[in-house]
């Protein structure tokens, strides 16, 4: 009986630690989940390069079917890690992946995609990173799941993995 209270306190502490220490402080919850995707107007990066000014696309151009919006860059290590999986995903035709090239030189990303292949349709260019800020991006790669009406359903932080795709993202896209 003497030890009942200390033991109880210990149990509560263990509970807190069990939850707290298993959380990754680097993955921050996005306040944008369930909200309309922030407005953007970005030039397309044509791959391969074409003459003339590239067209500008906005949210309205992507309404009608769910998409993945993948913020990436040729200078980003995690993007190299997830790239083969994105290639397989794009080739499987399960979802359209829109790439947002974040604070990157066009020449660099063209070379990067030239070597590795291009999973994106299309690639948008966020040269100064302002669209990234509007979307709450704090480190590439980050991937948003946007439904057919333009609502953000989910955000995946860090390199995309087959597990994350199967567990967190695929079920969201199957829903009508």
């Amino acid at each position: 009986m003497r030890f009942a209270i200390p033991l109880l306190v210990l149990a509560v502490l263990i509970g807190f630690f069990a939850v707290g220490l298993n959380r990754d402080p680097r993955t921050l919850p996005s306040p944008l989940i369930g909200k309309a995707a922030p407005a953007f107007e970005l030039p397309v990066l044509e791959f391969p390069k074409k003459d003339g000014a590239p067209p500008l696309l906005t949210n309205a151009d992507f309404v009608g079917k769910p998409i993945l919006v993948n913020f990436f860059a040729s200078w980003c290590a995690g993007c190299q890690v997830e790239h083969p999986f994105l290639m397989r995903l794009a080739q499987s035709g399960q979802v359209q992946i829109v790439g947002v090239d974040y604070k990157d030189a066009d020449a660099d990303v063209r070379q990067w995609l030239g070597v590795r292949g291009n999973p994106y349709a299309p690639i948008l260019v966020d040269l100064d990173g302002r669209t990234g800020i509007d979307w709450g991006v704090y480190g590439v790669p980050e991937t948003f799941v946007v439904d057919a009406r333009g609502t953000i359903l989910h955000k995946h932080i860090g390199a995309m993995t087959p597990e994350a795709w199967e567990k967190d993202i695929k079920p969201l896209l199957v829903k009508p």
Partner: peptide, 10 residues
């Protein structure tokens, strides 16, 4: 080998 993050002049 590695490209770098672009900083735009504002």
């Amino acid at each position: 080998r590695a490209s770098a993050q672009v900083t735009t002049v504002k």
